[in-house]
């Protein structure tokens, strides 16, 4: 298993949103991630994206085909 969710990247801008510090961004939902959810994306505190994230569940079938900016499994 990867150390973080393959859908996770960190970026400063997306659309009309911009930040001084790069923030967690979910390439599955194409949106910035809530801070608490970012702990799941990063597999912190015993959380893992494979077991604790319903978004990962819903999108993992796309990993091998179309996830820009994310590694494949």
């Amino acid at each position: 298993m990867t150390s973080q969710c393959p859908f996770l990247i960190y970026r400063k801008e997306h659309g009309e949103q911009s930040f001084d510090t790069a923030r967690a961004f979910c390439t599955a939902t194409d949106s910035f991630v809530q801070p608490m959810r970012a702990d799941i994306c990063n597999n912190r505190y015993g959380l893992t994206h494979t077991t604790d994230c319903e978004i990962y569940d819903a999108h993992q079938s796309t990993l091998d085909t179309d996830v820009s900016g994310a590694e494949t499994e």
């Binding site: 949103q17 930040f19 923030r23 949106s31 809530q34 801070p35 608490m36």
Partner: peptide, 8 residues
């Protein structure tokens, strides 16, 4: 808080 942030 800690749930949401500046993204919201």
């Amino acid at each position: 808080g800690g749930v949401h942030g500046k993204e919201a």
